[in-house]
Simulated assay, not measured.
Amino acid sequence: MLTDEIRADMAQAVLCWLATVDADGQPSVSPKEIFAPHGADRVMIAEIASAGSLRNIRQNPKVCVSLIDIFRQRGWKLTGQAEVIAPGEPHFADLGAEVLRMAGSAYPVRHLLSVKVQRAVPILAPSYRHFPDRSEAERVAEAHRLYGTRPASGG
């Protein structure tokens, strides 16, 4: 399910957004900055300060994780079932190894959010339809122009 392409795009994304639904059916979207693929079909997300996401997942485990490389203007919508894993559970360290490494001592990981991905759909900016022949380099250059940014030196 998590192809090499999805993994590469995930490595380029700075944030992902976790969409959940509360008990009243109201959607909630929360940014997450520490996340990584795990195994063939899981995304592990560090829960650092997300009481609402925890509450919602415990009531309804259906979630959506979206991630985008803002300069390439593409990414993925990953839908599936989430599970909350507490630090005391036996598989916490194994499942969370990568996100715990990423968090280091700077961020206390209170729980892991383990998302078993059931469906992956590409997210593409409208420019992919309007300008299908544009190269990735042209897309990145145009994004920098539109956002008023510059590529990092050396890259």
Rank of each mutant, 00 (worst) to 15 (best):
14 V>E: 11
14 V>S: 11
15 L>E: 04
17 W>N: 09
29 V>N: 05
40 A>T: 03
45 I>H: 04
50 S>D: 04
50 S>E: 14
52 G>C: 04
55 R>I: 02
55 R>A: 11
57 I>C: 03
59 Q>S: 15
60 N>R: 15
62 K>M: 10
63 V>S: 13
65 V>P: 03
65 V>N: 00
67 L>M: 15
75 G>S: 00
78 L>C: 11
81 Q>I: 14
83 E>Q: 09
84 V>T: 05
85 I>A: 01
87 P>F: 10
90 P>V: 12
92 F>G: 01
93 A>S: 09
99 V>H: 10
100 L>H: 11
102 M>Y: 14
103 A>T: 13
104 G>K: 11
105 S>N: 15
106 A>L: 13
107 Y>D: 09
108 P>M: 12
116 K>W: 01
116 K>L: 12
117 V>G: 02
118 Q>S: 08
118 Q>N: 12
119 R>T: 12
122 P>D: 01
122 P>S: 01
123 I>T: 04
128 Y>D: 09
129 R>Q: 14
131 F>Y: 11
132 P>R: 04
133 D>R: 13
135 S>H: 07
138 E>A: 15
138 E>L: 12
142 E>H: 04
145 R>G: 00
146 L>K: 15
149 T>P: 09
152 A>N: 08
154 G>Y: 06
154 G>N: 07
155 G>L: 14
